[in-house]
Design a protein around this nucleic acid. Structure first.
Lengths: 337, 337
DNA sequence: TTGAAAGCGGTACCAG
DNA sequence: CTGGTACCGCTTTCAA
């Protein structure tokens, strides 16, 4: 239906080679010929087929990003940051949410075949798959997921937000508030990030010599409802810790809601912390750790571009700083934002 | 670098036609030949090139989605709903955020050349561009944007959330609370959705015969900070209406924050409403209107698929229901979620 | 400066 | 059931 390079060539009375040269502004073409081709192209509403072009150039000028899902601001922001930079670098962006689906691996491979490189976020596919892709020549950048160590995986970059030290800072903050018994809510095995946070908490608790201790409430899903359930159980068992350290804000917010309904005072009777600093955290007065989500995506896009263009070949691993945000869920109100 | 269909053909001692047949499970191939080809393919780590395939089939098996940006849950959810259904239908998803960029039109055209059809969200590109794309054979579905009327634009579907009636319901709710002076915050010209909401409010105010009236505070951007500014100005001018009806939740939340800091009681002295029902709205007790964001995206994906596969040719326009969510920003607390 | 032609990696028709 | 081959639409030598 749309016109092809041959249509234009015929119309302008030149060869397809010349049309190609004009369209991509490569090679020398006499101005008047150029003009003729241009007007023919316009008249015929000609747009070079991306497919033909890509096949000939053996490149997609597109890259992908794989994430677990897009609910909650976290991944959305990362994707946004990624898209912004990728667009700036002149590349299209393909997205793929593995969500619950079991066919994640196949889907990711499919996607890999459609782009020059991709970013893999968190727990979406196994390291084995990533290595395999890299082995097949795909350029890969890992985000919110520890670097792959294997020698074979040279050329796989990674970008992460600092977790362990931030968790430590958060924990120190709690200990300063007199907290001794901490309950960590979240499953360290569900995501590498959570594992790091869990470690950071343990680090401080152990070395603090304050008699503080931490228990693990390993909930596999990180939703509001799960948080509410955890709170309800703790309340029912008359077993409130001094502080709930939650793996993310949603969890913490759900938990706070339930505690509030039960008439339990925060931070008087129990303190609560989250992670991510989503918008709702501010309105709920939730102490949390802010991550540079946008930058995570943007940095990944840059690294990926370097890998694709071959500007750099040695793997690189970035660690972006995070920030503790203290609010009224851990410190009695005085002034807060 | 990766092996091609010819490599496999040679290795298996067959023709490329046979390899193609085996790979796509079309045509009849003797089992043992099939087996031979399969093992060759595996041995050579052969994956059919998407590009070659797409070019030959003259289809991308991908569709795009264009949105203003991804901050805030609204577009993120729509995109998520879209991706989920598209994946289910076996199509890859390309995203494009026009954000502030001025080259939106070029970017969208680029994208159109990479997929079989696309969804255009809200205020991203002009109707003229959309019509042009459609004219060039692109399949288009509009979301959060009124249908295009022009005859030439046959084949452009649309999906929208109900705005006017919901705004009317919201307004009636306010009038029942004794509200007479309403300030509508948001620019009806900034988005078609906002315009509809503005109309819905006017509808009720005019026909109510209660002496109620509404003034328009046309802010062009819909951020928290803008909301805070509007509130600050109203406070400074000692000019508080009975209710602020905001074009979205962010705006309303920013406004509430400022009012709260000024010691003004909500809903005692002034009522506030938002739109979208973002997570923070619940924690802030904000009365708002919930939109089926996920469904907007999902429905768009389905319509688009019908257009692409040619299952349907006549244009279709869906209107999805919305729901008024009353919270404490308009009704003094008793019980709330 | 321009054109002819050889790919890029598949699909699918037509013989055999 | 299988092979030969003509495309799909564009890029890029190589000559003229």
């Amino acid at each position: 239906m749309p016109s092809t390079i041959r249509d234009v060539a015929r119309h302008a009375g030149v060869s397809i080679a010349t049309v190609s040269r004009v369209m991509r502004e490569s090679g020398d073409v006499r101005p008047d010929t150029q003009e003729r081709v241009r007007s023919s192209a316009i008249e015929l509403r000609y747009t070079p087929s991306q497919l033909g072009r890509q096949l000939a150039e053996r490149r997609h000028a597109a890259n992908g990003i794989v994430f677990p899902d897009l609910s909650g601001p976290y991944y959305a922001e990362v994707v946004l940051g990624y898209e912004a930079v990728a667009a700036e670098l002149g590349r299209s962006v393909l997205i793929l949410s593995t969500h619950g689906r079991g066919d994640a691996e196949a889907a990711v491979r499919e996607m890999a075949g459609r782009c020059d490189g991709l970013v893999v976020l968190g727990r979406t596919v196994s390291d084995a798959v990533v290595e395999d892709l890299a082995h097949d020549g795909a350029k890969v950048v890992l985000v919110a997921r520890p670097p792959i160590a294997l020698a074979a995986s040279a050329g796989v970059d990674s970008v992460n937000a600092e977790n362990r030290e931030a968790a430590a800072a958060l924990t120190r903050h709690l200990l300063e508030q007199g907290v001794r018994r901490i309950a960590f809510v979240g499953d360290p095995d569900v995501s590498p990030d959570v594992k790091e946070r869990w470690r950071g908490v343990q680090d401080v608790v152990w070395e603090s010599r304050t008699g503080a201790f931490v228990q693990l409430i390993a909930v596999d899903h990180l939703h509001e409802t799960v948080g509410a359930t955890v709170a309800a159980e703790a309340i029912g068992a008359h077993d409130l810790p001094d502080a709930f350290v939650c793996a993310n804000d949603e969890l913490a917010l759900g938990l706070m809601g339930e505690l509030g309904r039960a008439g339990i005072d925060i931070p008087g009777q129990v303190r609560v912390t989250g992670w991510d600093d989503v918008m709702a955290a501010r309105y709920a007065g939730l102490t949390t750790v802010r991550q540079p989500m946008r930058e995570l995506g943007g940095t990944a896009a840059r690294l990926l571009d370097e890998l694709i263009t071959g500007t750099r070949t040695d793997p690189r691993h970035e660690l972006l700083p995070t920030e503790l945000v203290v609010r009224t869920s851990t410190v009695p109100r005085k002034e807060s934002t």
